[in-house]
């Protein structure tokens, strides 16, 4: 009886929240397949398809008549390069902070992490001037240069958490067997860290897709935009909206990200809290 009540309680709490939290995604999906006649008619029931819906015309429009493919490509380019820069800088730093430098390393680790708290909204004005001064305005390079400023502290912190979970004995054993420290890193530490590194890749990439303020300030040419600003600034013009195409465009990046997040969720938690509570 108590078990039954407890179960019911779980549904009573989670179901309403699940409906509200997931509703925008349902609505993106629904809207993306509607025709103009169906969507812009106040007499129509919005939860039904009628007057030519469902249609895939909105997706065709999005990919053939807007610069969405360009923005998607730009996002992928910026994301990929930023992730590489982040790994090059954060991997060695995180390892060293977790392993090699004791209490001093702990404080430095926390200090690096605190810089993650300094928000873009505080830095975008001076950075916009610097970007203009060195001639990077309106170029993807400006984003590639600036984005690691928040991905590196974040990634260093996550990786630090992961490296701390690798038993030190494993490395000691390799060294007793005659491996140098560099070799130990290459053939013992690196292989076990791959899941942690993948987690960092995904979450750093997602930070890039989420960034809005720098992109909005640095880039105004429509061919150099990323999806985070392109949709809002180019597909919403005054009173002319392309709601179906907009919803299709928001849906497309959400699907792969949602899947990846679910796969890597547990590792994210381990790394994020591991840095602080171990």
């Amino acid at each position: 009886m108590r078990l039954l009540r407890e179960r019911f309680g779980s549904y009573a709490v989670t179901a309403p929240f699940a409906i509200v939290l997931a509703f925008p995604f349902y609505w993106m999906l629904w809207t993306a397949f509607k025709t103009d006649q169906d969507l812009y008619n106040v007499e129509n029931v919005p939860f039904k398809f009628q007057q030519g819906s469902p249609t895939t015309r909105n997706f065709t429009f999005l990919f053939e008549s807007t610069q969405f493919p360009t923005w998607l490509g730009n996002t992928l380019i910026v994301g990929a390069i930023v992730v590489v820069i982040t790994l090059v800088l954060a991997l060695p730093a995180a390892y060293a902070l977790a392993r090699l430098s004791g209490a001093w390393g702990q404080s430095l680790g926390v200090a690096i992490f605190l810089t993650y708290l300094v928000p873009p909204t505080l830095l975008f004005l001076p950075l916009s001037r610097v970007v203009a001064e060195i001639g990077l305005q309106d170029r993807l390079a400006s984003l590639i240069l600036v984005y690691p400023s928040f991905t590196v502290p974040f990634a260093t912190w996550l990786l630090m958490g992961f490296f701390k979970t690798i038993p030190r004995e494993l490395e000691d054993a390799a060294q007793v067997d005659g491996a140098s420290r560099l070799r130990t890193l290459r053939s013992v530490v690196f292989p076990i860290s791959i899941p942690g590194i993948l987690t960092v890749v995904i979450f750093s990439f997602s930070l890039v897709v989420n960034e809005f303020v720098y992109s909005l300030t640095f880039i105004s040419g429509s061919t150099e935009k990323t999806i985070s600003t392109g949709l809002y600034t180019e597909l919403i013009r005054g009173d002319i909206y392309f709601w179906q195409a907009l919803m299709a465009a928001t849906l497309i990046p959400c699907i792969p990200l949602a899947l990846l997040y679910n796969v890597f969720l547990n590792r994210f938690i381990a790394g994020f809290t591991g840095g602080a509570f171990r």
């Binding site: 939290l21 997931a22 995604f25 989420n210 809005f212 999806i227 809002y232 990200l257 949602a258």
Partner: peptide, 18 residues
Amino acid sequence: RLLILLPWAAPIPLGAIA
């Protein structure tokens, strides 16, 4: 849990448009 965690995975500039 999947439904509840969805908004976290959506890039917020896109979620806000929705």
